[in-house]
Design a protein around this nucleic acid. Sequence first.
DNA 1: TATTGTTATACTCTATAACTATA
DNA 2: TATAGTTATAGAGTATAACAATA
Lengths: 155, 155
Amino acid sequence: MAGNTDSERRPDLAAMMVPLGRALVAAELPVLREHGLAMWAYAVLLGLDDEPVHTQAALARDIGADKTRIIGVLDDLEERGLIHRQPDPRDRRARLLSLTAEGRRVRDTVQSAIQEREERLLARLPEEDRRGFLRALQTLAAMPRAEITGEPGPS
Amino acid sequence: MAGNTDSERRPDLAAMMVPLGRALVAAELPVLREHGLAMWAYAVLLGLDDEPVHTQAALARDIGADKTRIIGVLDDLEERGLIHRQPDPRDRRARLLSLTAEGRRVRDTVQSAIQEREERLLARLPEEDRRGFLRALQTLAAMPRAEITGEPGPS
DNA sequence: TATTGTTATACTCTATAACTATA
DNA sequence: TATAGTTATAGAGTATAACAATA
């Protein structure tokens, strides 16, 4: 009646995903520290990846942070010349955000190092599982949060 | 040189896994609340699943918690008759932990409800991806943490 | 001396509220 | 009045340190 025979029983998805996510983050930290980046700083660099401009609140929302929390991060990244932050001439309340050339270089270097480590981990999986895993993970990660939680979401 | 052609570029694993894990947890919370369980209480019930006995420190380590943090949880679960906690006669420092019949019932009920929701989510993936995803996820989740972080781990 | 469970404390991360400047 | 950015404050969650009982 529970829908699961004993043979196909598995741990809950969250019970597997959360500790695994923590371990992956822990694996990233030494790489980030080598380049003087904290986790949120790296998230900001990734968040500015495609979109060359932004507003701080939108960037915060995109990377799952609070707008008040990334201010210090932006201050630091700007001071180090990794991002530009200039007032929007058309709405002087807003700040336009973009990566500098150096910021782009750092992002690429760090991301390559991180994904190299990840590839070594993924290489230990059977090829068929590996492909399905990556495709499914990207599909699920791209879903709006509300579709996963089942809640109507922030209206 | 970076090992990735532009066509196969993907987000970092952690960048997908962590928000997805958070969303899955958020999806569990309403189910847990229906049964008066907090997240760590559910983790304890799951941690006592196979092993009928334990010591509190070992249980905490197994579920990725601090030994000081689950004490209140154990107090509550014991008071509600979901677990037994009795001094080990052979080492009176330790407490033997086990599920009561009611604790087992609650755990099964809650886990079934949670996994039903999860199955509805997984049903939206192509069958081939879904199988590989689950197999790979279980493989990775079963790995010792040190194999993922690359660190020597707590010696 | 070392370990189990416990309590008390400190620290980190995150969320909320309040202020300014623009609109 | 409403919004973007900022600052200050409060809260939740987590880790660290210190203690009593037992080994």
